[in-house]
Design a protein around this nucleic acid. Sequence first.
DNA 1: TTGGTTTACGAAAACGTGATAGTGTTGAAA
DNA 2: TTTCAACACTATCACGTTTTCGTAAACCAA
Lengths: 362, 362
Amino acid sequence: MPLIKTNYIFITKIIIINFTIMKRKVTLKQIAKELDVSISTVSKSLRNSLEIGEDTRLKVQAFAKFYNYKPNNIALSLKNRKTKTIGIIIPEIVHHFFSTVINGIEQVANENGYSVIICLSDDSFDKEVLNMEMLANGSIDGFIMSLSKETQFKGDFHHITEVIDQGMPVVMFDRVTNEILCDKVIIDDKLSAYEAVQSLIDKGRKKIALVTTVDYVSVGKLRTDGYIKALLDNNIPFDENLIIKIEDVDTCEIIIGKLLEDKAIDAVFAVNELFAVICIKTANKIGLNVPKDLAVIAFTDGIISKYSTPTITTVSQSGIKMGNKAAKMLIERLESEHEDEEEENYKTEVIETHLIERESTS
Amino acid sequence: MPLIKTNYIFITKIIIINFTIMKRKVTLKQIAKELDVSISTVSKSLRNSLEIGEDTRLKVQAFAKFYNYKPNNIALSLKNRKTKTIGIIIPEIVHHFFSTVINGIEQVANENGYSVIICLSDDSFDKEVLNMEMLANGSIDGFIMSLSKETQFKGDFHHITEVIDQGMPVVMFDRVTNEILCDKVIIDDKLSAYEAVQSLIDKGRKKIALVTTVDYVSVGKLRTDGYIKALLDNNIPFDENLIIKIEDVDTCEIIIGKLLEDKAIDAVFAVNELFAVICIKTANKIGLNVPKDLAVIAFTDGIISKYSTPTITTVSQSGIKMGNKAAKMLIERLESEHEDEEEENYKTEVIETHLIERESTS
DNA sequence: TTGGTTTACGAAAACGTGATAGTGTTGAAA
DNA sequence: TTTCAACACTATCACGTTTTCGTAAACCAA
């Protein structure tokens, strides 16, 4: 039985080596040297190539298994010219929506053997550019990103154009721009806002205020549009004074307080749950009862809405779904790119939203 | 003026090339070919080597700049045997504390030219092992991780020992284990819990309940210990019935409700803010006023505590600081490892906590 | 024996980079 | 004129893989 004999020799050998090269990562070269065969033979054996005789193949496999050989990812990336890694660029991570999207991306990425590498722009244009350049130099196969506020404000997207021109696919989500042609995953911000406001009107609210962001934040603008449209469609006079645009969260309480001095206001539509909860707290302070005197509805369903008192009715945009979709689109493009070069049929996927009714409206 | 002449020729040349090789990433080889010099010359020119004549050097630099040449990260990683990438393994990302830590890690990493690659274990042992194996094959230089619940439950840390044995540094934070020797960043869970409970006692609370996690979650256990010690030190009889261990968040409301039936309970110490806010809501439901009838204090300062009604007094553990520290420790080890091999002086850093007093106690 | 086909393996290239070690030309000192 | 150094550049290797191509040896048929 030659096989057993081989194994025996092989095992004694291992023990000796074990003391010399310790537990450090083994390479094909080391295995080849130890077993006195060529690197090619080792490589082929491990991929079960029929070119290699059974004896050698099994010997190599046993040896590799013992040493827990795993191909070096970096070497593979270099050779294959793909890293199986997705780069994610988002404004911030301590943020329920964004972390949910990451979660969604990671799920799909993992299922398909991809890793995710995350960079934060901190809503800064420069950091966004820097991070993208860093990742674009071979570290990743494609981007999934949401624009920083500053980038949206400046309207400068050259860094994105650049990576796309280099043949690196980009999928944008949530905060997107029309100026870049690429795959996108969004919600219908305008329609969702419209429906939210409509629901307030349906509940008999007459004077609805809007607490939104500054206009250059794309989603803020769109939600504002939806709000206005809902009013007009219901023949409600649209009043500029009922719209406040928050630039700085830290000081918004005062502005909101001023807004609520108008006691005729019986509802507030806020473009995010932070604004909403601040509205509620401010309202409480000046003696208003939510929802009796003031109904509040927020965009983006997060942790705050669920645990605030009263709980807040929200427009839920599933970050998980957006992340899933974005990852799917990116991976699909990455894997298909080999067949047909640059068939630029970019898609924009719209993820459905729905209203989660809670205590703050009723 | 030969320089200008050179530049002229060079520019016209570029335009032609521009049409042929498009905007794709340029390599040293391509530049070398176009300028009819060797790869070494190009490489050296770009690193401003004095070996290369000024003419050639400037020419190459101009060409490279025009084409926006950037060295390929993967090639560099392979060559230098380091990736300048940190692997982060955490249980979940849609979680205020963990995302804060990531933020902290990313800050320091970025400052030092490192990227972060994030994997989620979803509190599953298998996913944790899989992710670590994936990253350990060359993708990263070191790990920063917090153990999954299941890993803590099983007490199986072989995957971590393995990467450490391979010479890959690991820094653990928050959910750590004594069974692994490595750098760690923690807070003094026991002491912090002790102080929180003491503060309740100082405010005259007599019967303090504890809402905690199951024991195998290391931090939950430690915080429980602190709670008990504070009681005993104040000669308050310790009552098993006042401690409830939550396994499943979804059903905890009922258990908490049952606990609060004991009207003598005048304070609750919860090991996280989610438990705390649920306590408050449950208390309100059964007619208790927080903080008058029931004081509530929570571990971990997050978004909920800040915006809940009433706002919640918390023990703040700065995720940012923990992340900063963890990243610093890892990078320090990575950069020093070359000098002295394997000088295993592992440290455990304790990050300070402090009590943030809000409305839920007073 | 010859010619051809398997079998079983090895050599070498390629991915992109940077470092080490050459190499040929020029100029100057001896 | 020889020698040696400075200059300006090139060749080669290594990092760890996979893959293509090549080639001995063995086998088989004619």
